[in-house]
Design a protein around this nucleic acid. Structure first.
Lengths: 404, 404
DNA sequence: TGTATTAAATCAATTGTCTTGACTTATTTC
DNA sequence: GAAATAAGTCAAGACAATTGATTTAATACA
């Protein structure tokens, strides 16, 4: 920063910016609609057929799209549809959770190609980052064995961790992973791998996964409540993940909202409504590698402790959904998580009937007010991997701006 | 919509879109920074000096910017700063509230030029719209008397009403203005005036006003809690007002959040925390034209009923702020409203100390966690008027898209 | 006082992307 | 088999930003 008073302004754009936008528009249209002919794309995007033709040709040269057999649909020359080439790009997703790290590698369309899991390295992040770099390196080798041409097509690494970030001096809470959250992990991984690394919280990553492959596919206004070790919300607003001013948006687990019978000194929501609290109630060690199976069994058995927990959690989530609907007016709310499907389903069942809210309209859109999303311990890693793909290929305001 | 299966895609762009974006970028930079030379603009926007020169010349031709006296600042040729021409554009703001309608006309920089107030026409919207059209027409005449050249520079009319919109069959609540909310008022005004009309809820309009002239100026992530007849939140996310999927985002007055001592059957937040509830407690008729003065006096006198109300409202707002901070991670939260300044200040005072949240960080940005915004019965009308200005001149994703 | 230096702003030619309008190709309809 | 319809291409043109040289006007320094 030089001495002159700093001037704040957004970036302008140029022909390159417009072109980049149009490329992304094409890829986005193909991702949402499956396969489209050049004429379809021209109609859908408002561009001229010639422009579409040029861009498609360029994308085909780059190995991002591919033609398929032409289809006759009435009069006129048959259309040649194009679809995204799955192996057109790859990205790595890395999830750091309280007890495990998970790595996945996905392709352009979100297929998982490599998948590894290990315990969170003990000894803290300073040493642990070396272990993690090793894990990432091994995953890349596995990928290269399958797809030798993948080297130049790795668009980045998405890192997902429980939030919040950057405020740890105030909250030294055993529910948080202070050491890892304070460590410049993204920078160190970027140095170690040479890849672009983006950090987001686990709920945002889960929401990205929902948007790519799950219930939020093709929707632009969705709240994803993520039930993991903690509790968070991934916010899809105007078709993009919203991170807030300091990447901590959606930390609903830290809300101090009351339920009937609570006194004023209520604890954060995630102390009642999270896998961690359920483990607490059930006496399960959350670092147990069989965690998922143990919880699944406990939910299936359904003892009184489980029932009590589900009732309490469902009651709080019911209020949370009403609150989030009032605030966001979303197309739908999704309950997802690194939790067994049975648990998600039980919670949704117990959350009904939902409370009245502005989302409770007579002629509802096709989407229900509340629905189950991906209930998969891998969805956060998957969403983390989807982030670099989205960053590289999705239409967004920042992609239009001039690149120096 | 034709018979073929509908294809969803975003719009592409072209040179015109890029150019339109750059024009907006310039105006935005001048609005935020006051006055800048072409060289300053080039540096700030990343565009070349030549491009900036061309665009500034064009803007000057359109009467939107104007040069001022050149300033010597060290070596080299003195810079010629440009600033926005206040009379470069005009817009009308129309607020429909439970008991009054307010009309303002503002110019490009947000100065209020015309200002009228009258009772909400009785007899419902079908007849009332004619009265309103007449009011708007009169306001325009007043403007033309002052600025004869304003005719072609009227960019639109912003309409602000209490929300929510479109769900009234479910909530026939005396706190809402069902008849007006169900009437296609925006369309009718558009027909009657020939202007572009945009509808938003009053809290969003208030937030727009804060962004243009108030505490949110230059900030991109702000939650504005609007205390009016009802209670709402205007959401500034990524520098734009967020309206949700169906323009009802921010209806926090309808949240069913508990405070200590509430039972499960709690009423919506705005039944405790709004000017309407205060009037209720004080026995003031909210349709009294002296409302503002009456409330101001009552707050100054500070009887036990007022104190009780303030304590209750402050307690609920304190929780609401903690909740909104956890959800949005904003740069700041603003409490504003069509309420007396003294009331806003008293509430903020009583809301302290704020509850712990992710916004409670040690090294805080310049902005405080919570601050008072515009406390002015005119701010909603002003924000409504600012909306067409923003739509016409602010950089935004949709402005880049190709215009057919 | 005179020359070098620095910065703002402009001129003229160039580049890159989309657009336009005519044209080709392939299929159905009558 | 001719007309109609639709997909897709070709080649020239339009438009906005870029580039590099140039002009203008101030300060710095000898």
């Amino acid at each position: 920063m030089d001495a002159r008073k700093s001037i704040r302004a957004k970036s302008g754009t140029n022909l390159g910016g417009a072109s980049a936008h149009n490329r992304r528009i094409m890829i986005d249209a193909l991702r949402i609609n499956g396969a489209l002919s050049r004429a379809d794309l021209a109609r859908a995007t408002g561009l001229t057929p010639q422009t579409v033709s040029n861009i498609i040709e360029e994308l085909a040269r780059d190995g991002l799209v591919q033609s398929q057999a032409s289809v006759r649909k009435g009069r006129g020359q048959p259309a040649t549809p194009y679809h995204l080439v799955p192996d057109g790009a790859f990205a790595i997703g890395l999830q750091i959770d309280r007890h495990v790290t998970r790595t996945v590698i996905v392709n352009l369309v979100g297929d998982v190609l490599v998948q590894t899991e290990s315990k969170l390295p003990s000894g803290g992040p300073a040493e642990g980052v070396l272990v993690i770099l090793d894990i990432v390196g091994k995953a890349c080798e596995t990928l290269m064995a399958q797809f030798p041409h993948a080297a130049g097509k790795l668009v980045g690494l998405g890192l997902a961790m429980p939030g919040p970030f950057g405020i740890n001096e105030l909250y030294d809470d055993p529910w948080m992973m202070t050491a890892w959250q304070n460590f410049p992990l993204a920078e160190r991984i970027a140095e170690g791998t040479g890849l672009e690394v983006a950090l987001q919280n686990d709920a945002s990553a889960a929401a990205t996964a929902e948007r790519l492959l799950g219930a939020a596919h093709g929707l632009d206004h969705v709240v994803c409540i993520y039930l993991g070790y903690g509790l968070g919300a991934g916010l899809i607003l105007n078709g993009e993940i919203y991170g807030g001013a300091y990447s901590n948006a959606g930390e609903i687990g830290m809300m101090l909202a009351l339920a009937p019978g609570d006194d004023a000194n209520v604890e954060p929501l995630e102390h009642y409504t999270s896998m961690a609290s359920l483990c607490n109630v059930l006496g399960i060690d959350p670092s147990d590698p069989r965690l998922f199976a143990l919880v699944t069994d406990a939910v299936a058995d359904g003892g009184p402790a489980v029932e009590r927990w589900i009732n309490n959690a469902a009651d709080r989530l019911r209020r949370t959904v009403q609150m989030l609907e009032s605030i966001f007016d979303p197309q739908t709310t999704i309950l997802c998580g690194g939790a067994p499907q049975a648990l998600i389903d039980r919670l949704i069942e117990r959350m009904g009937p939902l409370m009245p809210s502005i989302a409770d309209r007579a002629q509802r859109y096709p989407e229900p007010r509340l629905q189950a999303g991906l209930a998969d311990p891998w969805s956060v890693a998957l969403g983390a991997a989807a982030e670099p793909i989205a960053r590289a290929f999705d239409p967004r305001f920042s992609a239009i701006l001039k690149t120096p």
